Amino acid sequence: MDFLQLQNKNIVLFGLANRKSLACAIAGVLVENGARVIHVVRSEERARTARRLFPDCPVFCCDVEEEANIIRVRDEIAAMVDGPLAGIVHSIAFANYSEGLKPFHETLKRDFLQAMDISCFSLISIANHFRELLDRDGSVVTISISTTRMAAENYGYMAPVKAALESSLCFLAKSFSAFSRVRFNAVCPSLLKTSASAGIPGYIDSYLFAEKVIPRKQALKTSEAANVAAFLLSPRSSGINGQCLVVDAGMGMNYFDREIVSKTVG
């Protein structure tokens, strides 16, 4: 049974970096379910990686920091694709700690605004410029984090940026409702073992802590977050719009685990 009903559906996926990235895992699930995946990556180096990992998928380059690039890649995809886009995946995040990790109140304006531009505004811009290519019942999925209210010092200013990204979903869903039924949702995973996370100071310790807090004592798998993304892209999730689906294997409900508390205060 084709539960996800993604067979022969065109889906554009922004953000593959390498085989460990969440975008790669999402692409894998989509391809397994018969979707036609179109990759959009930041550089020619990443394009070579995408072509090696997914030799049957078209690959385009686009640095979303320049809006003209989004318009260009839109036109390139429009000229190539057969039929409407059933979905778009926005798996893009960037933080430039140009002077190293600082206390949040010392965040540099230029770094913060660049992160907001690339990690948040790019979703709005992509949605705007690709709107005429999207199927009337299409789905747009972005990637956030399990909570933007946790003041993790080593995550710097990215949590407020992700909070803006999440807030944008309902506004995009509302404005698109004037002419379509396109849905906008986010997958919000807990700590993953990805290439992007490797650059976060102290991430390994946080990851190991997450394994202790999660009731099953095993961190979230990238494939588990990818499966949720595929579901949100599918017609099976037609009743979900403007939502942030937390995928954390129960981590958020178990911070006061007895074993962890006893080791901390014992």
Rank of each mutant, 00 (worst) to 15 (best):
S43E: 09
D111Q: 13
R51K: 15
H90A: 07
M1E: 10
G202L: 12
I70S: 02
S223G: 01
V228A: 05
S167K: 04
F209T: 11
R19P: 00
F94Q: 08
R46I: 04
V265M: 15
V140Q: 09
V140W: 10
F231G: 00
R216C: 14
S139Y: 02
I71F: 05
P103K: 12
F60V: 08
L245V: 14
I71T: 08
V81P: 01
S119I: 02
A229G: 02
L85V: 08
L22K: 03
T49H: 06
R181I: 00
S168E: 11
S175F: 04
V265P: 03
L165A: 07
D111H: 12
S177Q: 09
V31L: 12
D135A: 15
M158K: 08
C62N: 10
S167N: 13
V246A: 12
V228L: 08
C120R: 07
K217M: 04
C61F: 12
V187M: 07
S43K: 07
L113V: 04
C120S: 10
N33C: 00
V247P: 00
V37Y: 13
G199M: 12
N10I: 05
E166N: 15
G83P: 05
F130H: 08
D111P: 06
A178C: 03
P55N: 14
A186Q: 11
G100T: 01
Y207R: 07
V59L: 09
M158T: 07
F171V: 12
A198L: 12
T147K: 11
N227G: 13
G239I: 04
V141K: 06
V228Y: 02
M116N: 06
I204H: 13
G199R: 14
A78H: 09
T194W: 14
C244P: 02
R236A: 13
A86E: 05
K212Q: 13
A186L: 11
S146I: 02
L191K: 10
V73G: 11
A50P: 09
Y97Q: 05
E224C: 09
N8A: 08
E211N: 10
V41G: 10
S144G: 14
H39I: 03
E99V: 01
L169Y: 11
N185R: 11
D63W: 03
G87F: 00
L85R: 10
L208N: 14
P84R: 14
Y255I: 01
F231Y: 04
V59R: 06
L169I: 04
I70D: 02
E224I: 02
E67I: 03
V41E: 11
A198I: 02
N10A: 14
P189G: 09
I204E: 15
I200E: 13
